[in-house]
């Protein structure tokens, strides 16, 4: 029984890893070998010079689009954490007459997935003149009702004694939040931050809609353009894809603990 379990898990693990291997394999072989008459698991030779070819190809704005993706992902992660944690704390802890109304104002947006309203959002963002602009890529994604809601739930369970001690020390809401609540919530911030970074790096529909000039492409838009038009060498495309997932594989390995916690926290609304 136990051996069967390991057998099943091992077969599944191989199936899960093969696509990763294919990205790297196809990125490091010659064009002829990708479309060779018979498929071989191991390539006949590994062409490291493909890297030089990829990075010197002026038709492929890989570095530029990776930088764009990185800037967008970092700004969206920090901005979302800042805005949503402040809102969540205010809703959870500051007694105010309209606090209940504002809570419904936030949770009502949970029912509407952002992707479904991409046309309405594009209409407004293009009116602001933010098409092919960093602002258009970053700002609309900052206001996640779901993240604010998760922060509120988390702060509701934050130990009140810590906050009361800060209050006695003469700190107001603002000082209490920054000096006591945030430093004691690092794990939660890390968990939601990793999720926000991964989501931002991999998002496709919104950047496709808004980043219309090549200068503003994110890496996903760049890869997709060459994939659907098939206008560059296939091995270059695979190598570019391998380069594009490297930052996230590093995040996964380094931050796995927070990532798993983040998924468990964000997946299920208790």
């Amino acid at each position: 029984m136990k051996a069967l379990r390991y057998l099943a898990l091992s077969i599944a693990a191989v199936l899960f890893l093969v696509p990763f291997y294919l990205v790297v394999r196809n990125g490091l072989v010659s064009e002829a070998e990708i479309s060779a008459a018979s498929w071989t698991f191991l390539p006949s030779s590994v062409r490291w010079e493909n890297f030089a070819e990829l990075f010197s190809d002026p038709a492929v704005p890989l570095v530029r689009s990776m930088v764009n993706s990185l800037v967008v992902a970092v700004l969206q992660t920090l901005g979302q954490l800042l805005l949503c944690s402040l809102a969540g704390y205010g809703l959870a802890r500051i007694p105010y007459r309209y606090s209940g109304v504002m809570f419904y104002f936030v949770v009502a947006t949970l029912m509407i997935p952002a992707a479904v309203t991409f046309v309405p959002t594009f209409v407004v963002v293009s009116t602001l003149g933010w098409v092919s602009d960093l602002r258009g890529l970053v700002i609309p994604g900052l206001f996640s009702g779901f993240t604010a809601f998760l922060f509120r739930q988390y702060f509701l369970n934050f130990p009140r004694e810590l906050e009361e001690a800060a209050r006695i020390d003469g700190l107001g809401h603002w000082g209490t939040f920054w000096r006591v609540v945030v430093p004691n919530s690092r794990g939660f911030f890390a968990a939601l931050g990793v999720i926000a970074f991964v989501t931002s790096w991999n998002q496709f529909l919104w950047p496709l809609v808004i980043a219309q000039d090549q200068e503003s492409w994110t890496v996903q838009v760049a890869l997709s353009t060459f994939l659907t038009a098939q206008s560059i060498n296939v091995h270059e495309l695979f190598l570019a894809a391998a380069v594009s997932i490297t930052p996230l594989v590093i995040v996964f390995v380094a931050m796995q603990r927070w990532l798993v916690r983040g998924v468990a926290e964000t997946g299920i609304k208790e």
Binding site: P19, L22, N26, I34, W201, N202, S224, L227, F238, I245
Partner: peptide
């Protein structure tokens, strides 16, 4: 681990490989 992949990269592997 596949969660680290975007749908674009997965589409590339599925479609062209």
């Amino acid at each position: 681990l596949p969660t680290a992949c975007s749908y674009v990269v997965a589409s590339l592997v599925w479609k062209l490989s």
